[in-house]
């Protein structure tokens, strides 16, 4: 057994371009993904996430640019790259006509396991992903969540150091989504690097150590969730007073103490940008001295939604465009 020294950079992509017809699906993507942890590729439908992943996973040949997986070129050393990655597609890449057991057994055999090891691995994975009971049933009867789990299980047979997950939770109910999140976190705890695409800001925020925001085939921002949030600046203060009569008085006090402009929303919510959390103490004291009773106070961090809006100039509404 030789020991493989893998490069510390899991993915290094330079100027990746993929053109479909005259549509630049991916238009010069650069990525540098460190080994270990979860890397999120965030973007709306049709932004080029899937196309990028497919190029990194040797499923599509880039029209321009290059990409290396642990130092191995995805085009020149594709056979080596395929030994280092597991891919779970947006659409389950398992055989519909076969049972879960048969699927895993065949993939295991293809990956070089002996008949006996393949059977053992299959049982192990079915157990791990809670599919033992349904193992013999044809996949036609599987729910979306079960299919995704089987798909992910199939990607883990040879314990690849890098796992690509293309929108692993799209279309899953919240409970199944949480299970998937836990599974992904566990993979990383076991030492894998996970690259996942998502259209959900919440998902990227919850899971990813670093995020690349992709829009119209280009990376428009990159960093930790905190860094990205810092780009849109400060947190905001939101508070409600118990008695509507006091709104204007309260607004005046807040404006004096925070020394900024204060807004009142249509629902009587008073909001103001908050540069320094320290001043909240002073503000609350001042409001009490003025005998203004509050019904709620909260400090809101900027959301990735706001980040996205700031970066792209358009909100992340799901569009009808189908990603190729």
């Amino acid at each position: 057994m030789n020991s493989n020294k893998l490069s510390a950079t899991a993915v290094q992509a330079q100027d990746l371009v993929k053109i479909f017809g005259d549509n630049y699906a991916v238009n010069g993507v650069d990525l540098s993904i460190p080994a270990g942890g979860i890397y999120g590729v965030l973007g709306p439908n049709g932004a080029g996430k899937t196309t990028t992943i497919r190029m990194l996973a040797t499923l599509l040949r880039p029209d321009r640019g290059s990409a290396k997986i642990f130092g191995y070129d995805v085009v020149k050393d594709s056979h080596i790259v395929r030994q280092l990655i597991g891919v779970t597609g947006q659409y389950a890449s398992v055989d519909e006509k076969l049972s879960a057991t048969e699927n895993l057994f065949i993939f295991s055999r293809l990956l070089g396991l002996s008949s006996r090891d393949a059977r053992r691995k299959t049982t192990e994975l079915l157990e791990e992903f809670g599919l033992t009971e349904a193992a013999k049933r044809p996949l036609g009867q599987y729910s979306g969540g079960m299919r995704r789990r089987l798909d992910l299980a199939a990607s883990l047979i040879n314990q690849p150091p890098l796992i690509f997950l293309d929108e692993p939770t799209t279309g899953l109910d919240p409970r199944t989504r949480n299970q998937m999140w836990n599974t992904i976190r566990r993979l990383v705890d076991e030492g894998s690097t996970v690259v996942l695409t998502t259209q959900y800001l919440d998902e990227a925020d919850q899971l990813a150590d670093r995020i690349a925001v992709i829009d119209r085939g280009k990376v428009i921002a990159e960093g930790t969730p905190a860094q990205l949030k810092a780009k849109v600046g400060r947190a905001s203060l939101e508070l409600e007073v118990a008695d509507r009569e006091n709104i204007s008085f309260a607004t005046e006090i807040i404006s004096q103490i925070l020394m900024t402009e204060v807004h009142v929303t249509a629902t009587d919510l008073i909001t103001a940008p908050l540069a320094d959390a320290e001043v909240i103490t002073d503000l609350l004291l001042a409001l009490r001295n003025a005998r203004i009773v509050l019904s709620s106070v909260s400090v809101k961090s900027p959301s990735l939604d706001e980040v996205f809006l700031t970066l792209t100039g358009h909100p992340t509404e799901p569009t009808t465009t189908v990603e190729n």
């Binding site: 996973a57 499923l59 389950a92 890449s93 990956l111």
Partner: peptide, 17 residues
């Protein structure tokens, strides 16, 4: 046209298999 071929393509196996 099915998803399973994507998996075959992503596996380190002979392209012809």
């Amino acid at each position: 046209d099915k998803g399973v071929f994507d998996r075959f393509r992503s596996l380190p196996i002979a392209r012809i298999s």
